[in-house]
Lab assay of single mutants.
Amino acid sequence: MSIQHFRVALIPFFAAFCLPVFAHPETLVKVKDAEDQLGARVGYIELDLNSGKILESFRPEERFPMMSTFKVLLCGAVLSRVDAGQEQLGRRIHYSQNDLVEYSPVTEKHLTDGMTVRELCSAAITMSDNTAANLLLTTIGGPKELTAFLHNMGDHVTRLDRWEPELNEAIPNDERDTTMPAAMATTLRKLLTGELLTLASRQQLIDWMEADKVAGPLLRSALPAGWFIADKSGAGERGSRGIIAALGPDGKPSRIVVIYTTGSQATMDERNRQIAEIGASLIKHW
């Protein structure tokens, strides 16, 4: 067993022997301040990774656009098919120029040779490549099948209805392509620590998230040296922004954090800054 596999296998073990965790309302004060600064709703939840206990939450059962955070769930569904012998990570998928959609920095470079399922998941999570996500959605049967996968996990809230990039439209009061912070946090925890996926697939999923290259201005910008984070960000229309993450000190994750916002007129930089400040408060009061 590799060191990384050992780390993920012992996530519940280490967490069980940690000192009790206590909620700190100071972080919620910052979440509410972010709402004021952005002029928009902000949803927040913080779960203990081992027990699933909610440590703090704000608007945990209000719907927010998922945006690209759905790509972690998508690759979880792909990995479940791999575990069941219905898919192979090494299978190569070929596609054409007509398949390319807006923001496809990886797939646009491989029109000639195609990409493997493993490479597509890596591109979808680490670079948020939209064509990679659409190609992977095709392998599982489309958005409705991802929703069905989530329902089978016990998540009857999260739903995907459309493809990239239309799913980022974020129309107010439109339930399409949305989740709730509580539902997303619980589902992410199941994917990373539950028995739904094999140990190898859980490790692969967290490795992809740990290698995320496009979430630097968010929670990662607030992390002290030595902290662990595996995350996936999302951005959408109407001032929408979000991030889902597993993080913790001492090089291992111990909490799940989900943050979503929508309806702001603020710039992307300002949305990023507010999420980073929430992260800084979380870490300060850990």
Score class of each variant (00 low, 15 high):
219 L>H: 03
114 G>Q: 04
262 T>P: 02
173 N>L: 09
88 Q>N: 15
225 A>G: 09
127 M>W: 14
59 R>P: 02
220 R>V: 03
203 Q>D: 06
134 N>T: 04
74 L>R: 01
284 K>Q: 07
239 G>N: 06
248 G>R: 02
137 L>V: 11
165 P>M: 10
97 Q>Y: 11
140 I>L: 11
196 L>M: 14
178 T>D: 03
134 N>Q: 03
166 E>V: 11
124 A>Q: 03
267 T>N: 14
203 Q>N: 07
259 I>W: 04
260 Y>S: 03
89 L>I: 14
69 T>E: 01
272 N>G: 14
145 E>D: 10
63 R>N: 15
284 K>N: 06
272 N>K: 03
49 L>F: 11
179 T>L: 00
246 A>E: 05
201 S>F: 04
38 L>M: 08
257 V>G: 01
101 V>L: 08
133 A>L: 00
271 R>H: 13
162 R>D: 06
213 K>N: 08
186 T>G: 12
96 S>F: 08
140 I>Q: 13
272 N>I: 04
267 T>W: 12
223 L>E: 02
230 A>P: 00
136 L>E: 00
157 V>L: 08
137 L>D: 02
220 R>C: 04
178 T>A: 05
90 G>Y: 08
84 A>G: 10
78 V>K: 02
283 I>C: 15
232 K>I: 02
76 G>N: 02
39 G>C: 10
119 E>M: 12
230 A>Q: 02
39 G>D: 13
179 T>A: 03
159 R>N: 13
51 S>L: 08
193 T>H: 15
259 I>Q: 01
122 S>T: 14
210 E>R: 12
108 E>M: 15
44 Y>I: 06
138 T>F: 12
105 P>I: 11
278 I>P: 00
43 G>I: 01
129 D>F: 02
163 W>M: 13
28 L>W: 06
88 Q>L: 14
156 H>G: 09
53 K>Q: 13
77 A>R: 06
234 G>N: 02
248 G>C: 01
94 H>T: 08
180 M>E: 08
149 F>A: 12
255 R>K: 06
126 T>L: 09
254 S>Y: 06
60 P>M: 13
202 R>W: 04
264 S>Y: 05
286 W>T: 02
132 A>D: 02
88 Q>I: 15
264 S>F: 05
90 G>H: 15
66 M>T: 08
162 R>N: 12
87 E>Q: 14
252 K>V: 11
218 L>E: 02
88 Q>M: 14
112 T>R: 11
187 T>H: 08
118 R>V: 10
89 L>N: 05
135 L>M: 12
246 A>F: 09
196 L>D: 13
103 Y>D: 04
254 S>Q: 14
130 N>T: 03
221 S>P: 14
233 S>I: 01
205 L>T: 03
245 A>P: 01
185 A>E: 00
61 E>G: 09
121 C>A: 11
196 L>A: 09
70 F>T: 13
49 L>P: 05
225 A>P: 10
167 L>F: 02
175 E>F: 07
231 D>E: 04
122 S>H: 10
